[in-house]
């Protein structure tokens, strides 16, 4: 299929992009890495009247400062994977990168695009949720605002980013000394969207797990924070926590099925990942 006809505008700055968004509203789509958007256009799943190309507005910086890691919207998956600052401040993100698509796609795809798209099987939304990141949004009408990841992912491909807004950055708290971070996933083929994945962080002190935040992806309409698992694991030894968290998952997750993997199997796989993730924290 060929994409339906659309107009094209290249934004010269973030402010310009916001002005164009204000002008065109629902008819417009921002074009970042294009790695999700162009496929949707070519399948005619989306037929926007105008594309606003933000590829040249800058906003690709990766900075660690004052206990925060700030990933600007146009930082590519590949750049995040290469960044020493990321590996140090949020090792989970570095672990996630090899699971995102393939090198060519990682070279173009951006964290802003991934968060704005809100694919429930994608890695960045789950990582943002697990680490309680803040998404920085901006619009011409209302200026900048910040939304925590817990409030950002609203439903299937639906986020708190309004039609006239853009994602400017995501800010992650830098990892604490006793914190452990793990990103694991199961995909039929490397680079595919996860059948099930987990992004998890917890404190490990004296062989005991506390403050577990495990965000699962590929299990629902949004990434899902496993709160019951967290409760079950609180204060337990690694082996205990791994088992308890896995057992509790049934109360956190109710994954949908697809033609080759039903919901029950997904939950079963999620339990395996939960256990392995907690065990990996001690490794």
């Amino acid at each position: 299929m060929k994409a339906a006809a659309f107009r094209y505008a290249r934004a010269t700055s973030a402010a310009h992009a916001q002005a164009l968004l204000a002008e065109h509203g629902e008819d417009a789509r921002l074009l970042a890495g294009g790695q999700s958007l162009l496929a949707a256009l070519n399948l005619r799943l989306s037929e926007p009247a105008i594309l606003i190309d933000i590829g040249r507005i800058g906003h690709a910086a990766i900075e660690a400062r004052d206990g925060r890691l700030r990933l600007s919207a146009l930082a590519t998956h590949a750049a995040i994977g290469r960044s020493a600052a990321v590996a140090e401040a949020a090792p989970m993100l570095a672990q996630a990168v090899p699971h995102i698509a393939h090198p060519a796609i990682r070279n173009r795809g951006t964290i802003g695009g991934s968060l704005a798209l809100g694919d429930p099987a994608a890695e960045w939304p789950a990582c943002a949720l697990a680490l309680n990141a803040e998404i920085v949004l901006a619009s011409a009408a209302r200026g900048e605002r910040r939304v925590s990841a817990e409030d950002f992912f609203l439903g299937l491909y639906s986020t708190a980013c309004a039609a006239d807004e853009m994602v400017l950055a995501a800010e992650f708290p830098a990892t604490a000394p006793n914190e452990r971070q793990v990103c694991l996933e199961l995909a039929r083929r490397r680079g595919d969207y996860a059948l099930v994945g987990v992004a998890a962080s917890a404190k490990l002190e004296g062989g005991r797990i506390s403050g577990l935040r495990a965000a699962f992806f590929g299990v629902g309409a949004t990434p899902v924070l496993a709160r019951e698992a967290s409760r079950a694991a609180e204060g337990a030894t690694v082996a205990e926590a791994a088992r308890a968290a896995a057992d509790a998952l049934g109360r956190d997750l109710d994954p949908p099925g697809d033609p080759t993997t039903d919901g029950a199997t997904r939950l079963r796989l999620a339990r395996v990942l939960m256990r392995r993730a907690v065990e990996a924290m001690a490794a």
Binding site: L43, R188, R189, R190, G191, D192, Y193, P259
Partner: peptide, 16 residues
């Protein structure tokens, strides 16, 4: 047909 794209019809890929 439930899987009419290369994203859901899984052809074998090099890594596997």
């Amino acid at each position: 047909l439930l899987n009419g794209t290369m994203a859901d019809y899984l052809v074998p890929m090099a890594v596997e």
